[in-house]
Design a protein around this nucleic acid. Structure first.
Length: 589
RNA sequence: GCACCCAUAGCUCAAUUGGAUAGAGCGGCUGACUACGGAUCAGCAGGUUAUAGGUUCAACUCCUAUUGGGUGCACCA
């Protein structure tokens, strides 16, 4: 058992003994400023407060019941009632030696694994994937990897936008202005041109819009020709998706697009109507407020000029077509019946937050029993902005295409590798550039807190110095270099004794110990940036160690073996951590 | 109009959700025995956390107001 887990459970037991009704799940120890120890608890102060107790007295009482002498030095009470824990060197050594033997890598699998559906990426057919998609794709992929690593059963689903109103316009364009040679050269560009052209025409001319709508109605009614064209558009888009996901090394267990749910949409609406949850309004069918929430918190109400009026979730349009609320309801229903998940998480732009609020409430009203068994979570993220503070566009008004961003990243990385390591063969330099460039982009996107908007900048996305993926990869490569330089690699002893004496060794070792703590925080709060920051700190601690503690030229065999083992553990944590972020590693760069 | 989100160092961002002296990177300035890989390391400068109040042992974090930005407000997804 990892030391912080031991401290945590001992602390929980001690507190429960004194305050049986206390919520011990909130009581946790977490690393703080090293000046105040390796772990700390600040929960006693708030516990004391709600019970009108003296916090320092409570801390003293808890301490009297607390025995963590196996893992910690004497526990200190500090400040208003903090408990500061300092790990014993022997405990640190014990844990690292266990890791060296391969017993763990500083994390433990979840005690009760959950089944979790992760819905992310969701590109649209006939549109290029742009920088915006890197957010959902990168965050979603990092989260699903973290959850899997912690032992959960994960189903990743790419809910592709392959059905809906845009196809009316696309079909019209395809039939009337399609440029075949252009389609063969660059299918997505041509499809995009069709859409843009017809869309502009529709804005100017209502009869064009009617024509587009009737194409859509024909498609949804099963018209053979329109279905054939639609299938071709989907197929062409799939090629693009496969290319991008291949480059990003992102895989999905299933990719059930919106069209997959088409057969059930009528039933969903019928069911909502029979249960009295939906009703007709202005020719459409919608779910309305049930009045159970105060107006301000009710997503089915909106204030217009001082009056609260209905803002229903439409499930059938006045023309008889369905929309994404209907599809999303059918999707939840299907997922529950197919996988019985404990959670479904949606990694989607924050702007859709009102939609998900309505969706989750509507589903809960529709299937109350099923809803009790599943946690529905919208993991939102901020918008990508240009440096003018407006949603990001290039000078020509388009968004930056994801493929172009990746190309540029690899190009810049190749330039750098060629400059730094001209001696490496070209093929190897290209492979390094691929990993480094791609890693830089992914890391740059994962580093900021997902909730905040971020300003897009090429230089930031493609940076190769500082708190970036290349910095982490460089630390990893330096470790690998040490092992390559080792004179007798085969003479490496199997389970060396760890000697942690230098402050840099101890700091690095203690930090490695917190890998699992970090992974759990990532999984609990769906925030991969914790892992980015953790790994950056691993690399920083390693770099300091590397500067100050000679490994191969260590003063004795024992110290050399110990440091080699520490290097190896660092490399393993870096590799595993980067892999969890969806970033590959290279042995040299 | 109404609702929601945001404002932290010159720039881009953190701060594990109410914890101790607000941290990084970039940019700027100093340094580092030819270094087990300099894509690195050590250091300096840079902050009244938009403004004004409030809550409490403790506030970037919660509340109120103000200013400035963004987003969303049935038949697009």
């Amino acid at each position: 058992m990892l030391p912080h887990k031991k401290i945590e459970s001992a602390l929980q037991a001690a507190v429960r003994e004194l305050l049986p009704d206390a919520d011990t799940s909130i009581i946790l120890v977490r690393p703080c400023d090293p000046k105040f120890g390796d772990y700390q608890s600040n929960a006693l102060m708030s516990l004391a407060k709600t019970r009108k107790l003296n916090p320092r007295q409570l801390a003293t009482d808890v301490l009297a019941k607390l025995d963590v002498s196996e893992v910690c030095e004497k526990v200190e009470i500090a400040g208003a009632g903090f408990l500061n824990f300092r790990l014993k060197n022997s405990e640190l050594v014990k844990n690292l030696e266990a890791a060296v033997r391969g017993e763990h890598l500083f994390f433990v699998k979840a005690a009760s694994p959950k089944t979790i559906v992760v819905d992310f990426s969701s590109p649209n057919v006939a549109k290029p994937m742009h920088v915006g998609h890197i957010r959902s794709t990168g965050i979603g992929d990092a989260l699903q990897r973290s959850l899997r690593l912690l032992g959960h059963q994960v189903i990743t689903d790419n809910h592709i936008g392959d059905w809906g109103t845009q196809f009316g316009k696309l079909l019209l364009g395809w039939k009337q202005i399609l440029d075949r040679p252009a389609l063969e050269r660059d299918a997505i560009a041509e499809l995009e041109r069709l859409y843009k052209t017809v869309n502009a025409e529709c804005d100017a001319d209502p009869t064009r819009l009617d024509a587009a709508k009737s194409e859509l109605v024909k498609l949804q009614a099963g018209d053979e020709e329109n279905l054939r064209i639609w299938r071709e558009m989907v197929k062409l888009s799939q090629v693009q998706f496969d290319t991008i996901y291949g480059r990003l090394r992102v895989k999905f267990d299933v990719a059930l697009g919106e069209s997959f749910y088409n057969p059930w949409l009528g039933e969903v609406v019928a069911s909502l109507l029979t249960r009295g949850l939906a009703r007709e309004s202005e020719g459409a069918v919608g779910v309305f407020s049930d009045g159970s929430l105060p107006p301000k918190e009710d997503p089915f109400l909106v204030n217009r000029d001082g009056e609260w009026i209905a803002d229903p979730a439409l499930v059938r349009k006045s023309d008889g077509g369905f929309n994404y609320m209907t599809t999303d309801l059918a999707t939840i229903d299907y997922r529950l019946k197919t996988w019985s998940p404990d959670e479904i998480i949606y990694v989607v732009d924050d702007r859709q937050s009102p939609h998900f609020k309505k969706l989750f409430i509507t589903f809960t009203r529709w299937q109350p029993d099923a809803a009790k068994k599943v946690k529905l979570v919208h993991v939102g993220f901020g918008k990508i902005m240009g440096d003018d503070g407006k949603p990001f566009k290039t000078r020509s008004g388009d968004t930056v295409k994801l493929g172009d961003l990746l190309d540029e990243a690899e190009e810049r990385a190749l330039q750098q590798v060629t400059e730094k390591s001209p001696e490496l063969p070209e093929a190897q330099r290209e492979e390094i550039a691929r990993v480094v460039g791609l890693g830089a982009v992914k890391y740059a996107d994962l580093l900021p807190n997902r909730q905040s908007d971020y300003i897009f900048s090429w230089d930031k996305m493609l940076a190769l110095q500082g708190n970036t993926a290349p910095y982490l990869l460089y630390a990893y490569a330096r470790i690998k270099s040490i092992f390559r330089k080792q004179e007798h690699p085969e003479a490496r002893i199997q389970n060396p004794e760890l000697i942690l004496a230098a402050s840099e060794e101890i700091a690095l070792a203690k930090h490695l110990l917190n890998f699992g703590l970090t992974l759990e925080a990532v999984a609990d709060e769906f925030r991969p940036n914790y892992l980015c920051n953790y790994l950056f700190e691993v690399a920083v601690h390693f770099s300091r160690f590397f500067e100050n503690c000679p490994v191969l030229k260590a003063e004795s065999d024992a110290v050399r073996h110990s440091r080699l083992a520490l290097c190896d553990l660092t490399a393993r944590v870096l590799k595993q951590g980067l892999e969890t972020l969806g970033i590959e590693t290279v042995e040299q760069m």
